[in-house]
Structure formats: C-alpha cells, structure tokens
Amino acid sequence: MFGDMMGMMGKLKETQAKVEATKERMHSVLIDESSSDGLLKVTITANRTIKEISVDESLLSDKEQLEDYLILTLNKAIEKATAVNEAELAAVAKEGIPNIPGMDGLFK
C-alpha cells in the first residue's frame, strides 16, 4: 500500500515538473493574429506576452479606429494563446495523473 502511495507521489512530482517545463516552453510558442483587413498585426506568446505589434500607416490618422483595431486584434490573439496554453497544460496534467479510483473523469 505504501509503495503504491510513494509511486503516486513520485508520479505527481514528475507531472509537476513537466507542467513547469511546459509553462516555460510556452514563452517560445508564438501566436500571430491580424485584423480582418491586415492593417494591424500582433504576435504574442502562448503565455500571453505581447512580442510585436505592427500598425499600417493608414491607421495612424484615426486614434479611435486604431484603438478599436488594437482591442479586437489583441483579444483574438489572447483567446488563441489561452486555448493553446490550456490545451498543452491539460495534456501534460492528464498524462501524469495516476490511476486513482474515482478520479478517472477529473481531467476530461
């Protein structure tokens, strides 16, 4: 019984290390998003850190329009990055969860 418990604890520690490594790797996964007309482009990491914003000259003359473009495009990029981040972390967590009775549906 204690061997099983020690094995599960070891597996949980191993999974925790994999989760941390995955979080670090997400700093290098880049997500690109553009406005529908391509006038604004954003690059962020899967950890939702903005890396680059490219603004077409034509947007610089209308502050309100530029603000709208930034909000819409950044929100789309953040949604994509969040989905990638959550999927990666869920895959690592699911892979490392020991088979504990009653907990099999927890990460589905």
Rank of each mutant, 00 (worst) to 15 (best):
E52Q: 14
Y69M: 09
N85P: 00
P101Q: 08
D32F: 05
L39A: 10
E64L: 10
D104S: 15
M5V: 14
D104K: 14
E33N: 11
E57N: 09
E20Y: 00
V29I: 15
K63D: 10
S28E: 13
E86F: 01
E24P: 01
M8W: 10
Y69S: 05
I44A: 12
E88Q: 10
K23H: 04
E64R: 08
G3Q: 13
K11F: 00
T82V: 00
D62T: 08
L39W: 02
S61A: 15
S35Q: 05
T15Q: 11
I44W: 09
V19D: 03
G10P: 01
N85V: 01
A83K: 13
A93T: 15
K80Q: 12
N85I: 00
D104M: 12
A93V: 15
L70I: 11
V55K: 03
A46C: 05
I71G: 00
K80G: 01
E14Y: 03
K11G: 02
A87S: 14
I100H: 03
G38E: 05
T15H: 09
E52M: 10
L66V: 06
D37L: 06
I71F: 08
E88P: 00
V92T: 08
I78L: 10
A87W: 02
Q65D: 03
S34I: 01
E52G: 06
G10C: 03
E67Y: 06
R48F: 02
E24L: 13
E79M: 06
I53D: 02
L66P: 04
T49G: 05
L30S: 11
S28Q: 13
K23M: 12
P101V: 03
A77M: 05
R25S: 15
A93R: 15
E95K: 12
G38N: 05
H27F: 05
V19S: 04
M8S: 10
L74Y: 11
L40E: 04
A46T: 04
I71P: 00
I100S: 03
A21F: 06
V19R: 08
T43H: 07
T82N: 13
A87F: 02
D56C: 02
E52N: 14
L89W: 09
M9P: 00
E64I: 11
E64A: 14
L106I: 10
A87D: 11
E88Y: 01
R48C: 14
P98H: 08
T73I: 07
L89I: 14
A90C: 00
G96D: 11
K94D: 07
V29D: 12
M6F: 13
F2E: 06
G105P: 00
L59Q: 08
P98E: 05
T43D: 03
P98N: 07
L39T: 08
A17C: 02
T43V: 15
S35I: 02
L70Y: 03
A87P: 02
G105Q: 08
L40K: 09
N47D: 13
S28G: 04
G10N: 14
K94N: 12
L12V: 12
K76C: 05
Q16D: 12
M1R: 09
L89E: 07
K63T: 12
V19K: 08
A93W: 04
R25C: 00
L39V: 04
A91W: 00
